[in-house]
Design a protein around this nucleic acid. Sequence first.
DNA 1: TAAACGATCTGCT
DNA 2: GCAGATCGTTTAT
Length: 198
Amino acid sequence: MLQPPPRKNCLSRTFYDRPPSAVARDLLGKALLHKVDDAWIGGLIVETEAYLASDDPASHSARGKTPSNASMFDSPGTLYVYPIHAKYCLNMVTETKGRGSAVLIRAIEPVWGVDQMRIHRGYNSIKRLTRGPAMLCQALAVDRSHDGTHLLSSRDFRVADVAGDCESEVHVTPRIGVSRAQDRLLRFICAGNPFLSR
DNA sequence: TAAACGATCTGCT
DNA sequence: GCAGATCGTTTAT
């Protein structure tokens, strides 16, 4: 699996224009790639979390639209990159424009441009390369400047189908690190994958 | 303008 | 496994 998936394999608007839990579930096993210095770097999505448009106090959209979370209310397939604890996390907007739901990408399995990712991460071990939402952003060189990017039209991002998809079983658990709505089962993982955040 | 709070990570034990 | 660092955004004086 050395060649990145071709552009024709990219997910369409109809994929993102669905409830966030469905999108989160189906993103497992898909390829996430960022073009940096003319090279594609990225890997396979193995852990995601859904944040709902309404009745979800853990979601950034729960208290309405602000300048900082505005892209979460943009059209499905938009990137929402937000700062937390002096780091960044990467989300993909879901559902109809204006609703305010998204899927957080928590972990990927490194596949393409591993050497480049290690440089971005400061030559850390492969285990700690992309094992959490902020690590993943640093490895892929994603920051706030990418907030609001549209996946469907961007030439520098690619989210695509790959042969095989998610080989392992999908498990559902409560979300990590949230202080509210801890009973909700909105975290989706490829069970047993060594690159999960926990 | 001051203070508190995270959808976190790292280094050290 | 745990304590401490870290800084933009929000909420309170």
